[in-house]
Amino acid sequence: MILPVDLLPLFEWFEDTSVGVVIRESLWLFPVIECFHLLALAMIGGNILVVDLRLLGLGMRGQTAAALARSMHPWLVGGLAAMVATGVPMFLSEAIKCYYSPPFWYKMGFFVLALAFTFTVRKRFTAKARADRVPIQGKLIALVSLGLWFTVGFSGRWIAFY
């Protein structure tokens, strides 16, 4: 990884945190946290999909994208919170492995992009999408959103392989 600053000491510190040590030394803690990470994944993924499908003119067409996005919002935020709350301890338990794992860096990069896109461009657009027909920008936003979040999930799975 080519980074402007050497982050390895920081990652070594992460690896030495008590949370990281406890998880690493336990046989079952990591798998259990991982289960909840996956359940939260289903929740976020479903949430994003329901709204993005609607922007594409698919799925729940009886409601406007604005209404769907508004009522799904608490579950999206809740799912993201659960994702971070389970992801951080898993990361701490294998921080140095993550440091040397290209998929980890892709995941973090795309996660930041996906978050920023979801809570700026996508949120602003869906808040105003009160018509039955979604204009072409909405379809583009849905495709970008699906692409970004898919890449986060895909590279997340590949941390285990590389």
């Binding site: 996956l38 994944l41 929740m43 993924g45 999909l49 009886g62 579950w75």
Partner: peptide, 28 residues
Amino acid sequence: HVLTLCLFLGMTSTWDLRLAGCALRSVP
């Protein structure tokens, strides 16, 4: 297999939450 969780479980849990009265309450 893992990412399809989002599609399968994401959809079923959306209507399950509706049935449980926890989400999308204004939608039939």
